[in-house]
Design a protein around this nucleic acid. Structure first.
Length: 345
DNA sequence: AATACGGGGGC
DNA sequence: GCCCCAGTATT
C-alpha cells in the first residue's frame, strides 16, 4: 500500500473530534486556521469557541471594532493575526459580497492567508486538490521518505511542497489533508514518537535508518534580544490610571499598556526621574515607588523583556485617566494582564 | 535569504 | 533552557 491510503486508514481510525472539522463553512474553517497558526489545538480551542460565539458570521466580525477583536484575541500572541483577521473579514464583505472565494489564488490574496491556509480552506471547504504543508506535514514527510533537506530553507520549502503534491490523494483531499496533519500531531510527534505502534513503520525510511530523532532538519537558531521596560503605573486620588496604545512596528501593535519608558539597562529611581519628565502622560508631582524589586523577565521568542513596574501616586487629576477596573475592557499583553492580577491582591 | 512576530507546554 | 506548535509578512 502506498503512502496516502495508509494515512487515510490511520485517520479514519484515530481522528479527534474537532469543531472546525464538522463544518465546511469557509468562515469557520478560515477562523480556525488563523487561530491555529503556530498554535496548539489545546491552546486555540477556547479562542475558537469564543470567536464563533461572539461573531457567528463574517459580517459580525467585519462590523466589530478592532479593539473588541484584539480583546478576544488577548493572550493568544502573534497579534497581527487578529488585525489581519479583521481586515480580511471586512474585505470578504466588501470585495466578495460576504462569500469567501473558492480558489487557492483568491484565498491567498486575503490578508494573513498564506500558502498553507489558502490550501487548507480550498481543500477542506471546496475539495480543491491542493496539498497542505504545515509543521506536521514537514515532519511526517521528512521522516517517512527520509528527506534531510532543511524544511525552512528555500529549497526545502519547494521540495516538500512538490513531494506533498506527489503523494497526496486528490480524490479525498479533505480527509487526506486533515489526516496527514493529524497523523503528525498525534502519532508522528516531534519527540519520542511511538514508532513501535505505528502502522507506517514498515516503510518509514527514518525508522529503518534509525534517524527518527534527527528529522526533520531545521536551520537557524533564534537569537534573543534583551530589552528593559519601565512601566509607569499612575494612580490618582480617584483611583484612575492611564493607559497608552502601542503604535508603530514592533510587538503588541495596537494593544494597550501603562506608559512605558524603555532604557538600555535596568534603572534606579534616580536614573528614571529625568526620563519621566520627557513623557507627557506623567505629572510632575508624583511619588515614585518600585513595585517589583526583582525585574519580571517576560520571555518572547525573540526578546526577553526585563520589566519593572513603578507606582506613581499623584494628587493631580489625570485628564486621560480611566478607572482601574476599566482596564479590563482594553486588550493588553499578557505581561500587563499578569501584573494587574498580582496588584489587586 | 533572514528576521520579526507571542505565548504556552513538554521534557 | 530548548524545542515546537494546523505560518505569514516584511525586509
Amino acid at each position: 500500500m502506498s503512502f496516502a491510503p495508509k494515512i487515510l486508514n490511520w485517520y479514519y481510525e484515530h481522528q479527534r473530534n474537532l469543531p472546525w472539522r464538522e463544518t465546511r463553512d469557509p468562515y469557520k474553517v478560515w477562523l480556525s486556521e488563523i487561530i491555529l497558526q503556530q498554535t496548539r489545538v489545546a491552546q486555540g480551542m477556547p479562542y475558537y469557541l469564543r470567536f464563533v460565539e461572539a461573531f457567528p458570521t463574517v459580517h459580525d466580525l467585519a462590523n466589530a471594532p478592532e479593539e473588541q477583536v484584539l480583546k478576544l484575541w488577548q493572550g493568544l500572541g502573534y497579534y497581527s493575526r487578529a488585525r489581519n483577521l479583521h481586515t480580511t473579514a471586512k474585505m470578504v464583505v466588501t470585495d466578495f459580497k460576504g462569500e469567501f472565494p473558492k480558489t487557492y489564488k483568491e484565498l491567498k490574496s486575503l490578508k494573513g492567508v498564506g500558502d498553507y491556509t489558502a490550501s487548507a480552506i480550498a481543500s477542506f471547504c471546496f475539495d480543491v486538490p491542493e496539498p497542505v504543508v504545515d509543521g506536521n506535514v514537514y515532519r511526517v514527510l521528512s521522516r517517512y521518505f527520509g528527506v534531510d533537506i532543511p524544511i525552512n530553507s528555500t529549497q526545502g520549502i519547494k521540495y516538500f511542497k512538490e513531494l506533498a503534491r506527489e503523494v497526496m490523494d486528490a480524490e479525498n483531499i479533505r480527509d487526506y489533508n486533515q489526516g496527514i496533519m493529524e497523523f503528525g500531531a498525534v502519532q508522528c510527534a516531534p519527540k519520542k514518537p511511538y514508532c513501535l505502534l505505528c502502522p507506517l513503520q514498515e516503510s518509514c525510511v527514518a525508522l529503518q535508518k534509525n534517524k527518527v530523532d534527527q528529522l526533520p532538519v531545521k536551520l537557524n537558531k533564534t537569537k534573543v534580544r534583551n530589552r528593559y521596560f519601565n512601566y509607569m503605573v499612575l494612580l490618582d486620588d480617584d483611583g484612575n490610571t492611564v493607559l497608552e496604545q502601542r503604535k508603530g512596528k514592533g510587538i503588541w501593535q495596537n494593544l494597550y499598556q501603562f506608559p512605558l519608558i524603555e532604557s538600555g539597562k535596568m534603572l534606579q529611581a534616580e536614573e528614571l526621574m529625568p526620563l519621566m519628565l520627557k513623557k507627557d502622560a506623567i505629572p510632575e508631582t508624583a511619588s515614585l515607588s518600585l513595585y517589583n524589586k526583582e525585574p519580571i523577565v517576560h520571555k518572547l521568542s525573540h526578546q526577553h523583556l526585563h520589566t519593572q513596574f513603578w507606582i506613581l501616586k499623584t494628587s493631580d487629576i489625570l485628564e486621560e485617566g480611566i478607572p482601574w477596573e476599566g482596564i479590563r475592557d482594553f486588550p493588553v499583553p499578557v505581561l500587563i494582564a499578569d501584573f494587574i492580577k498580582t496588584l489587586k491582591i
